[in-house]
Design a binder for these strands. Structure first.
Length: 627
RNA sequence: GCCUCGGUGGCCUAGCUGGUUAGGGCAUCGCCUUGGUAAGGCGGAGGUCGCGGGUUCAAAUCCCGCCCGAGGCUCCA
């Protein structure tokens, strides 16, 4: 097996110092310098042949094209193996590599063999600059140390289509996107990866200004602090998804956030994603922080006694948190974090027929969940990704998803299966910077039941391996909030009042007394409303009424109630309704009784979770957390 | 990780072709104002100008190194 440490470098300088073996090559002891090249620290093992060397160079050539380099240096490097080839064979193969490379039009150099050399080198910093390869003839490309999954992904050949609701598959480049501008943006983002924006995403300013969430400089990047209002909103969102999933039949569990690196069932799964976890050392054991809820649930299912009678069987956890150590440059506000909250419901199914039925239910569940966050089908785009084989056998099923969705969808088709799933779909949100990211998703997993030893017993008493569906009906909660804030920003830009859905607004009703002589009345009103299960506060600060209204508007409070002499005398409230556009400002004021206001709010928030306000009801008692 | 941009009281920011006590706005504190649907007035306090080094008579300002952040590339189970 030829092993190569392959380094895309700015330069190398090397100088032979003394012979290490008697058969060392003849050479001058002077320093040589080469610039802008790929260095191949190469180790030749027993059994390698010149053909192995040529094969290695074929791989190198592909790489050179990718990184746009033209020069290589074959540098003998014995330290990559403990079963080295005989020096004479090794030298022959190394020279073969050099000359073969030259025959391919590559400028190829070789460092002298058998010498102790000193060297200085500078490696370029891009992601592909450092690679390790090992080449054997029997198994082309096999035995590579770098992640198989990441490798596989590079090789994946994708074919892109848009599918119409009538089932026609149209190659993306031929599709007429008029009337589907958002889908166009999404497709552009996915395929051509055009990204221009050079500004902070709008939701980042909003999340801080509204005192919802903020960066935490004392933590690792991508780990956020949640202020009281943000925690309240997030907690309601979490509760909402959980209630939805339980109604669908999910059994909620809770599992550890860290797992043993060496656990046999996990290591296999894990080694597909090297260097992306947080590692935690405790005594002399290494743990990783989970990057999804799969582990805990699969381990529970592994130990469970499951009968075919119980299928489909749904198991659910909302992870707070899942951890993914994304590269620092990939992080972006609430859109992409290193720790995030993820509802994850798995269903184990006996067969494809059951999978299909279950899949449709979860598709609807996901639509309903996003709907609850105020995201309608106009706000996101469907992508469906599958292998060619799966599509050929299940065309109707795939099309039925699109039909149910009711809009054309983006299709990615793979020639072969490189992942553990044969089909997945996502709902993708496109933000104000034209960047897309996945919210809800579901996958058909045909691999992990076996990997984790999950079985059910069928009607004949035989152990069977099920299929597993992985669904997050909302996607990461943080990302839902990101989508809501981005949507609100867009509303504002287009002249509509930005706001969160009523059931998620931290303050639903703000009472503003006209003067401090009405403070007692304001407080009484607030308390009556609070007693009915509505989040209400009142502004007792020494400010003008106009000022208080302005600040309430800037907090996106849906109902602002002014209390003064008129209201006390008539018993009718003056309610400023945020949903009524500011164009005809006087139209914003609605006259209604306390009971009418409360029943309107109850009505509009029906079926959604409620939590009481977790801040003092008197504004003067609240600290300012940001700004 | 690389590239680009940035870091000035809690927040936003002026100053940055080097030169008085670093200027303003918001918030905070105090006083006045008691108001009818998006900013009432006056005053006070609050600053290691990210960190370290260098150049200079003199550095927030110029140079070097580092730290942190954002965006882009890449990546996205």
């Amino acid at each position: 097996m030829v092993k190569i440490l392959q380094l895309h470098s700015d330069f190398i300088e090397f100088q032979p110092i003394e012979k290490e073996i008697p058969s060392a090559e003849k050479c001058e002891k002077k320093t040589r310098r080469l610039e802008d090249l790929v260095i191949l620290f190469t180790c030749v093992e027993e059994g390698d042949t010149p053909q192995t060397g040529r094969e290695a160079i074929n791989g190198v050539k592909e790489y050179l094209e990718k990184v746009k380099a033209h020069r290589i240096l074959v540098y003998p490097y014995a330290h990559l193996s403990n079963k080295l080839a005989r020096p004479s064979d090794a030298l022959k193969i190394l020279e073969e590599m050099r000359s073969y490379a030259e025959s391919l039009g590559i400028e190829a150099h070789r460092a002298p063999f058998g010498w102790c050399k000193k060297f200085i080198l500078s490696i370029k910093g891009h992601p592909l600059a450092e690679q390790f390869r090992s080449i054997t003839l029997e198994e082309k490309g096999g035995g590579e140390v770098i992640s198989k999954a990441l490798k596989a992904e590079e090789k994946v050949k994708s074919h892109w289509y848009v599918v119409e609701i009538d089932g026609r598959l149209i190659p993306v480049e031929e599709y007429d996107f008029s009337g589907h501008e958002n889908l166009k943006k999404f497709a552009d983002y996915e395929i051509s990866k055009i990204r221009i924006a050079q500004r902070t995403p709008p939701h980042v300013d909003l999340m801080r200004r509204l005192e919802l969430v903020d960066y935490e400089p004392a933590s690792d990047p991508g780990n956020f602090r949640w202020y009281p209002k943000g925690r309240l909103v997030k907690s309601l969102m979490e509760q909402f998804v959980t209630e939805k999933v339980i109604a669908y039949g999910g059994m909620e569990v809770e599992t550890p956030i860290m797992y043993d690196f060496e656990h046999p069932a996990l290591s296999n799964y894990l080694h597909r994603f090297p260097a992306r976890q947080y590692i935690l050392r405790s005594d002399d054991k290494d743990f990783f922080l989970r990057f999804s809820a799969c582990f805990g649930q699969f381990l529970i299912l592994h130990d469970a006694q499951i009968s075919y009678r119980q299928l489909p069987l749904r198991i659910y956890e909302l992870t707070r948190y899942s951890f993914r150590r994304e590269k620092s440059g990939e992080l972006s506000g609430l859109r992409r974090l290193r720790s995030f909250t993820m509802p994850d419901v798995h269903a184990i199914c006996a067969n494809m027929k059951q999978v299909k039925e279950e899949f449709m239910k979860r598709f609807q569940l996901s639509i309903d969940t996003l709907e609850g966050f105020g995201l309608s089908r106009n706000d996101y785009e469907l992508a469906i990704r599958f292998t060619k084989d799966f599509y050929e056998e299940n065309k109707d099923f795939v099309i039925s998803l699109v039909k149910k969705f009711g809009k054309p969808a983006l299709i990615e088709m793979w020639d072969e299966r490189f992942f553990y799933f044969v089909l997945k779909w996502e709902f993708n949100f496109v933000d104000n910077l034209d960047k897309a990211s996945a919210l809800s998703t579901d996958q058909i997993d045909i691999e992990n039941a076996k990997r984790y030893g999950i079985f059910y017993v069928d009607e004949n008493g035989e152990k069977k391996t099920p299929l597993i569906l992985h669904c997050s009906p909302s996607g990461a909660i943080e990302r839902d909030l990101y989508a809501m804030l981005e949507k609100a920003y867009r509303d504002q830009m287009e002249g509509r009042p930005p706001m969160l859905p009523l059931w998620l607004s931290p303050t639903q009703v703000r009472i503003v007394p006209v003067a401090d002589s009405f403070y007692a009345e304001a407080e009484k009103t607030a308390e009556r409303i609070a007693g009915c299960g509505v989040r209400v506060d009142w502004d007792d600060r020494p400010l003008t009424m106009q000022r208080k209204i302005r600040e309430a508007e800037m907090e996106w409070i849906p109902y602002i109630v002014v209390v003064g002499r008129k209201e006390v005398e008539s018993g009718i409230l003056s309610v400023r309704d945020r949903r009524i556009s500011g164009a005809e400002r006087s139209g914003k004021i609605r006259r209604m009784s306390l009971e009418e206001l409360i029943s309107e709010i109850k009505d509009l928030t029906k079926g959604k979770p409620f939590k009481p306000l977790s801040l003092p009801m008197r504004l003067s008692k609240r600290p300012r957390f940001y700004g």
